[in-house]
Design a protein around this nucleic acid. Structure first.
Lengths: 143, 143
DNA sequence: CACTTCAAGTTGTACTATACAACCAGAACT
DNA sequence: AGTTCTGGTTGTATAGTACAACTTGAAGTG
């Protein structure tokens, strides 16, 4: 396999993966779509942030984020706190329930990945992870 | 980084990739969604196949495939030929236009990937491609 | 200060991809 | 001939998304 073939293969395989990910994520966790999961994860990681930040970070329209957040709030996984310094801003925080669901889904996803990767030598796992990080890192956007 | 960390990282990065792929694919090629692209690609590779095969291969509902194919036919990228041996079956084939569009989108996707991977040493590309194939191959479905 | 402009979010509307269920038509197997 | 299986379409519903119009608060400018 030369470089060109490798690039084509990477393209094909990443695409193949992406095609399935959302659907299977939905099937695995009907209570938390891939998007919701990602947003909750971001909130946990940042310990709260604004809707606008989520939109910018994930290249989503602000209306999309608004509705996602509304749903998460209805489900009591997220709460909004109006920023006292700027009353336009709502800082989003995980609720206790949100934190729990997130942990639970993360764990079950982790288990699924681990099962799939069970027979890989550690060396390969580490290298694969490194490649993925490197592949994703330049980018805000492109595929 | 140990194996556990690597698994978590792989999970995170694959998910991050999946989250963006469809949207950016759509933006790059408004004329051919990621799904349509994938289906056309499959038709080219197999030199024609049945709608049911597509559904099975991509874990899509047959109604979904039916509508996708209908759209592709409306766009004159695909044509149906009733199987003379079994009148229930329609064998799908790329049209000339379909072949052209597919080639064009493939090329532009390839260029985007290649740009992104431009500064990778060939050795890493080959290994990365290998990992992806290996990761995707067991599966019909997960993660 | 009054006026304009900017930024954060929400709501209305529309579209796409998708699934599930009900159905139809041809084939296969008693 | 009658039942069951298979390939495909259509009806209906849902999720996720974008874009445009609007509201409200903040910031800058005369």
């Amino acid at each position: 396999m030369d470089a060109i073939e490798a690039v084509e293969s990477i393209q094909r395989e990443m695409t193949a993966f992406a095609r399935r990910a959302r659907a299977s994520a939905g099937r695995m966790h009907p209570e938390l779509s891939l998007v919701s999961y990602t947003l909750l994860g971001h909130l946990e990681e940042r310990d709260g942030c604004r809707a606008t930040d989520l939109a910018a970070h994930y290249a989503l329209d602000k209306s999309t984020v608004s509705r996602q957040v509304a749903a998460l709030e209805r489900a009591a996984l997220v709460e909004r706190r109006v920023d006292p310094d700027d009353h336009r801003v709502q800082v989003l925080h995980l609720t206790e329930a949100g934190r729990e669901i997130l942990a639970q889904v993360t764990e079950s996803r982790r288990a699924a990945f681990q099962e799939r990767l069970a027979d890989w030598p550690e060396e390969d796992l580490v290298r694969f992870a490194g490649y993925l990080v490197r592949y994703n890192s330049p980018g805000t956007d492109r595929p």
